[in-house]
């Protein structure tokens, strides 16, 4: 089933919560080096798919492969040491600690102690948040927390970076900053899979798009084909509308 250029392959996964099926028979592949977007209306099951990939929810059925290895039943902590990392929908930061302490917690599991300070500085520069100083995270804006969390996610030196709504709650300038950041990371060879509702953000960075609806696969293709797909426009905005 696997090919050399696939980094992630999700095959017929289903997630049931009791009698409710949040995701049903869903499949998608992510190629190495691409920026792949997962879109769909609210409640489509996108975040549930992310949680199955990371192991927060074990799939009820189906298989998930990372770099040709079956990771379906691995624990979250093991999966995160296999070259994958995530920025969550709600910023998953440690609000009572400082910016550098946050990055340290993320980095120390992947970096030798004697190199930890250098690694923290490298991550700060990579994301471009040096100007923020070292505030307590609870005093940072939502956008700044999003960037911090991306820096923390990068601490795992991931080959595959999952971003759950990286532009949510950001202003236009902050959205541009985030888009450029994602493009920079991709230019360095990192594969990005992200969920996003902001179609302007999607148009700026996405190369391929998978659409979900009601927990199921709906469509897949390059950005243009999805933007021109009438079915996608319909599930997003109703009949007579277009996504763009």
């Amino acid at each position: 089933m696997q090919t050399d250029n696939m980094i992630l392959s999700i095959q017929k996964v289903t997630k049931n919560f009791g009698a409710i099926s949040a995701v049903s028979d869903f499949s998608m592949d992510v190629k190495k080096g691409e920026i792949h977007c997962l879109i769909g209306p609210n409640g489509a099951g996108k975040t549930t798919v992310f949680k199955m990939i990371t192991g927060v929810y074990p799939p009820t059925y189906g298989k998930i492969y990372l770099k040709d290895r079956d990771i379906t039943n691995l624990s979250t902590s093991k999966k995160m040491k296999m070259g994958m990392s995530i920025k969550m929908q709600v910023p998953g930061v440690y609000s009572e600690l400082t910016l550098r302490e946050n990055i340290r917690i993320a980095a120390q599991n992947f970096t030798e102690e004697k190199m930890i300070e250098e690694e923290i500085e490298r991550l700060i520069d990579e994301v471009g948040i040096r100007d923020l100083g070292n505030p307590k995270v609870k005093n940072m804006s939502h956008g700044q927390q999003q960037w911090l969390e991306i820096a923390m996610a990068l601490a795992a030196k991931p080959e595959l970076l999952l971003l759950d709504e990286p532009a949510a709650g950001l202003g236009p300038d902050e959205t541009d900053f985030t888009a450029n950041l994602v493009l920079d990371l991709n230019a360095k060879g990192m594969t990005i899979l992200f969920i996003e509702h902001d179609m302007n953000f999607v148009k700026k960075i996405a190369q391929n798009v998978t659409v979900m609806n009601n927990g199921k696969f709906f469509a897949e293709g390059d950005l243009d084909s999805i933007l021109n797909n009438e079915g996608v426009a319909e599930i997003y905005l109703g009949k007579e509308a277009k996504v763009c």
Binding site: M80, K81, S85, M88, I105, N109, F110
Partner: peptide
């Protein structure tokens, strides 16, 4: 290192799991 690991679990255990901590 241990202290920061424990602080991370104190503040947000789910997030720490996603940083590879068991």
């Amino acid at each position: 290192r241990i202290g920061y690991m424990l602080f991370g679990i104190r503040e947000n255990a789910e997030r720490s799991e996603l940083f590879g901590y068991n």
